[in-house]
Write a protein that binds this DNA or RNA. Structure first.
Length: 946
DNA sequence: GATCTCACG
DNA sequence: GACGTACGTGAGATCC
């Protein structure tokens, strides 16, 4: 029983309890803490202490948890000693690509070892070995003595040690990693992790592996052949020629990789398990250290936990840098609260005329319509509200039926006849001397267009907010709360919700008036706030030349709609249905059971459990990934079922989203489909389209294009489509100022071929189409804020190769790298980036402490100025086009916008002149240092025009 | 209502 | 030595 003298009290309490050893991966934690936590400096001397702080908090939490748990008996903290280890003797390049540790981390290494002493924990390191080898060695010895081993780390290189009685604990996420998690990560059990890593290599450690093989492939191969040696011996059997060659050629490299990856569990350590037994913390020493480090919060915590003295209220020490809101001066001056309101119901012509007169003499009126539907083309008008002064508004009911149960009282309430009221309102709404203010006034404009009224001039509080103060929603309720401190009556309070919801025409007039008049009133008040805000934001020109005039243009487009041939869609639906049934039968035959092909869950179970095809779980929900990429890979590996599922999915998508749904979207009165374009929805300034979305009509596949053929012109008309060619790359060339790209666009050179020749050093003449394809993917990637991972994924190449492509690209186009760095920096400093016309694209997560979120925002920061400038350009064209068309005496109607494309319906005899004019206006929409090119086509259908 | 998948630029 | 990935959208189906 002599051993027991060194055991923790907890272990002594229960002799049957197994010992449990915590092996803390100190070096791993330092780097992770350094990068995960905001920088922090010691107040007194400015010494960087962020990683120390993170480390101490982690240790403290670990000890607290261990004390609460009662099962932990031993703890040791393990560190790397120096850079060079025995692995460098095997392979000199091992970890050769590592940067030096950051300048402000270096001094913290010593402090962290000191911290271990302060917490009375042994800090272990040994020359020539990595922390991981020591951990492996201690783990093995502890297991031999019957103890459980918890490795406090999330390093994947330690996963090979997981097994019976050994698991990892991620200290930041407080999550245990056992066999299951290892299987998820590597696709094999822990004892085969080394084999997988030897094949896949590791770019961060510079472990070479075998070219062309990543974790997925490696796992599949090891699963098939058992282990690395067996695989290398039987490499000649591999079907894929490239893979076979590589496995044979790089067999030795794989074996070397194994030596690098496999952890040594025979390090000649001198410590014994007993040396790691938990000791009582020396509070004086610990508090002295915390004082020295100036960790006041942690000190208070320790004091409290140990009951040393009453914890005095401590000021919480701020951690990290203070981040600005990114907007500089506050834009919003809080408007006075909505105090007194006088809302009137207008039920006779005299009263209406009185309001019209007041509005006319005020020269400004807020207008709002109440209807039965969110889609204006489907909606029936219920009434109109007007506001002339803050707090003074009216509601003019026009289409109300009796409130409540119709059977009780079928008599409609007293209202002015709709036609009469609209006739009286028309002069006001069209009066060039009276500004009509609305919240999303485009909706009301479409409603009025149906009554033959062209509302003008207009102003829109939603668009004002979108331009002057982006980065949040611009719905009226949100704006009202934000700027007026007032919560409007919720729609649901008036009309109910869910099944019990009624249309607005059934609402009792007094309730309708309270709701509707308030909307107009709030709109007017918001106008008083947002107009000055726009001025202060210095984006008046953007609003006045783009967003504001665009509202009218879009209202006309939505009102016009586009003709769709229902019979053609019906035929497609029937065809798709038939083929889906056939495919479904084949799929179930292959699967050997009936299941719902449309259920990713069931499909995943069939593929990966029943048929046990290779492939991994993904996501936190434990669901099998069955995306097109996965199925595509399986199909390429020779499996029939996934191919058929892909075909089935394509048809299911086309049928449910397009051929079926689109038929239902055809407006009964017009025989056309009327989408709704959102003008204030996207973060970059693009439009979006919904109900239905006509910006994602299929075009990339043969089957999909059949749907475009169902979008047709009226008899005697053609559809004309005009699109910008490579507008985003042209914008990049301009704003990043890239000489070769600009020259190429001037000379009309194939831009992807140029990139291919620059990056891969091949001549443009007679270029291999696959090489050009890679270059095209790089060009797209650049616009998206390229990452090696993304490009590798897109091209199906190893990440290392993708990285070389990117490096070569930056080498040839250093200006692009400069541009990206500048945008990242800009975003970090001010929280937004801007388009060429000054539109702000806000990046709320740019300074997040979550590295993934930050990286995501950085990529968005690179993309947004490009995408947003393209959006501004086409908006300029859209605003310029209607007057240009009218001036040319043409009758073309703009119908749709699809980001870089405009679609028109044109009388047959005007096709050529319209094409020429449209192209000219679109080209002239921006004056860049590169020419803009527009391609235009015409035909009886959208498919033909494209 | 969240998640997955997929249509577009 | 670490996050989880291409940028921006909308919609239908399934599942909880």
């Amino acid at each position: 029983m002599a051993d027991n003298a060194t055991l923790s009290p907890a272990a002594q309490r229960d002799g049957a309890t197994r010992h449990r050893l915590y092996l803390v991966d100190g070096s791993g934690y330092i780097f992770r803490a350094y990068h995960a936590l905001p920088p922090l400096t010691r107040k007194s001397d400015g010494a960087p202490v962020g990683a120390v702080s993170g480390f101490c908090n982690m240790l403290n939490k670990l000890l607290e948890d261990a004390a609460a748990d009662g099962r932990v008996s031993h703890i040791a903290v393990i560190f790397d000693a120096a850079r060079a280890t025995f692995r460098n003797d095997i392979y000199p390049d091992y970890k050769a690509n590592r940067d030096e540790p950051p300048e402000d981390l270096v001094p913290q290494f010593a402090m962290i070892r000191e911290a271990c002493g302060a917490f009375s924990l042994p800090a272990i390191e040994m020359e020539g070995f990595e922390a991981d080898d020591l951990i492996a060695t201690f783990a093995k010895r502890a297991r031999a003595e019957g103890a459980d081993v918890v490795i406090v780390s999330s390093d994947k290189d330690l996963m090979q040690l997981v097994g019976d009685g050994v698991w990892l604990l991620d200290p930041l996420k407080n999550r245990e990693l056992r066999e299951k998690e290892v299987l998820e990560k590597f696709g094999v059990a822990p004892d085969r992790v080394v084999d997988v890593q030897s094949l896949a290599g590791d770019s961060t450690d510079n472990v070479p592996g075998v070219p062309g093989i990543g974790i997925k492939t490696a796992a599949q191969l090891i699963g098939e052949y058992g282990d690395l040696d067996a695989l290398l011996e039987r490499a000649a059997e591999i079907k894929q020629p490239k893979r076979r060659e590589n496995l044979i050629q790089f067999a030795e490299q794989a074996r070397i990789s194994r030596e690098l990856v496999r952890l040594r569990d025979d390090v000649p350590v001198t410590e014994r398990l007993d040396d790691f037994a938990i000791r009582r913390v020396d509070e004086t020493k610990l508090i002295g250290f915390l004082d020295e480090m100036e960790f006041r919060t942690l000190k208070a915590r320790v004091i409290k936990a140990h009951g040393l003295e009453a914890a005095q209220p401590e000021e919480v020490v701020g951690r990290g840098v203070v981040q600005g809101d990114g907007h500089g001066e506050p834009l919003s001056a809080q408007a006075p609260a909505v105090a007194k309101t006088d809302y009137r119901l207008v039920q006779d012509m005299a009263a209406l005329q009185d309001w019209i007169d007041r509005a006319t003499s005020a020269g400004r009126v807020a207008v709002d319509t109440e209807t039965t539907d969110l889609s204006p083309r489907r909606a029936r008008l219920c009434g109109v509200s007007l506001a002339v002064e803050p707090g003074e508004a009216c509601y003019i009911p026009l289409g109300h039926v009796s409130a409540g149960d119709l059977a009780d009282d079928p008599t409609p309430p007293k209202q002015i006849p709709e036609a009469e009221a609209l006739a009286a309102l028309k002069p006001l709404l069209e009066d060039p001397a009276v500004l009509k203010v609305g919240q999303n006034i485009k909706y009301d404009m479409v409603m009025f267009l149906k009554a033959g009224i062209r509302v003008a001039p207009i102003d829109d509080t939603m668009l004002l907010s979108y331009t002057a103060d982006p980065g949040h929603g611009h719905g009226m309720d949100e704006l009202s709360e934000l700027h007026l401190g007032h919560r409007p009556i919720p729609y649901a309070e008036v009309c109910g919700k869910g099944k019990a919801q009624i249309t607005f025409d059934r609402v009792a007039l007094d309730a309708a008036c309270a709701y509707a008049a308030e909307d107009a009133d709030i709109t007017l008040r918001l106008h008083h706030v947002l107009r000055p805000m726009l001025l202060r934001s210095r984006r008046v020109a953007l609003y006045e030349t783009l967003d504001r005039p665009l509202a009218t243009v879009i209202a006309d487009m939505e009102f016009a709609g586009i003709k769709v041939d229902p019979a053609a869609l019906q035929r497609l639906s029937a065809d798709f249905a038939e083929r889906m049934t056939a495919l479904e039968a084949e799929i179930q035959e292959l699967a050997g059971e009936r299941f719902n092909v449309g259920s990713p869950k069931q499909l995943g179970e069939i593929l990966f459990e029943k048929m046990s095809l290779p492939g991994g779980r993904k996501g936190k929900n434990g669901a099998w990934g069955t995306g097109a990429d996965v199925l595509e890979r399986l199909s390429a590996e020779g499996h029939d079922l996934p191919r058929r599922v892909l075909d089935w999915r394509q048809l299911a998508k086309l049928k449910s989203t397009y051929t079926d749904t689109l038929q239902a979207e055809i407006n009964a009165e017009t025989g056309r489909v009327h989408t709704s374009f959102a003008l204030a929805a996207t973060s970059t300034g693009r439009l979006s389209s919904s109900e239905p979305n006509l910006q994602n009509i299929p075009v990339r596949t043969e089957e999909g294009r059949k749907i475009r053929a169902a979008f047709v012109a009226e008899p005697g008309h053609k559809l004309v489509s005009a699109d910008y060619s490579q507008i985003e790359l042209r914008i990049l060339a301009d704003i990043a100022d890239i000489p070769q790209l600009k020259q190429a666009f001037h000379d009309g050179i194939d831009i992807h071929a140029l990139t291919a020749s620059e990056v891969f050093g091949v001549p443009i003449e007679g270029m291999d189409p696959m090489v050009r394809r890679s270059a095209k993917a790089i060009n797209f990637g650049i616009i998206y804020g390229i990452s090696a991972f993304g490009l590798a994924n897109n091209l199906g190449i190893p990440q290392g190769e993708a990285k070389r492509f990117i490096d070569a690209y930056f080498e040839r186009y250093p200006g692009v790298k400069t541009y990206m760095d500048a945008k990242r920096r800009e975003a970090h400093e001010q929280g937004f980036v801007t388009t060429l016309w000054g539109r702000r694209c806000v990046l709320p997560g740019i300074n997040s402490k979550n590295p993934a979120e930050r990286a995501f925002n950085e990529r968005a920061a690179i993309n947004a100025p490009i995408q947003g400038t393209a959006a501004d350009i086409i908006k300029r064209a859209m605003v310029a086009l209607p007057p240009a068309i009218a001036e040319a005496g043409l009758a073309a109607r703009m119908l749709l916008q699809v980001h870089d494309e405009l679609l028109f319906e044109v009388p047959e005899g005007e096709v050529d002149r319209t094409k020429t004019l449209v192209a000219k206006v679109m080209q002239g929409a921006a004056d860049l240092s590169v020419p803009l090119e527009v391609e235009a086509g015409a035909g009886d259908s959208w498919g033909q025009a494209h």
